[in-house]
Amino acid sequence: MTAKIEEKLGTLHYTIDKEAHIKVNFDACNDCENKACIRGCPAQCFELVQDEVKFQYEDCIECGTCKILCDKKAIEWNYPRGTFGVVFRKG
């Protein structure tokens, strides 16, 4: 049985900034063969919808995987501003 990602992320506390801390240049995604970000992101922030890569920063758990996996350097990556983002109480 695989649990839905919503159930997992539902255990976390977030303070969401209105400004995205990660930005993706989707032009590069079109001819990206691997699309490793989709498999690698532990929060499933990347998704393929009708052959197009979609990204949402709100669920991000700030690991840095996507930045390292993206060979096209299409990801402008940062942590959220101070006080924003995810909180782990049992990390």
Binding site: M1, T2, A3, I5, E7, K8, L9, T11, L12, I38, R39, G40, C41, P42, A43, Q44, I61, C63, T65, F88, R89, K90, G91
Partner: peptide, 30 residues
């Protein structure tokens, strides 16, 4: 996908027994 690997781990009978009746308190990655 990455999150499915931990579900896979939980399906081994050995692990299933150890975590039986436990509740997921938190999910995290680093």
């Amino acid at each position: 996908k990455a999150p499915e690997f931990i579900d896979h781990l939980k399906q081994f009978p050995y692990i299933r027994r150890l975590i039986k009746e436990g509740t997921r308190l938190e999910y995290s990655a680093h």
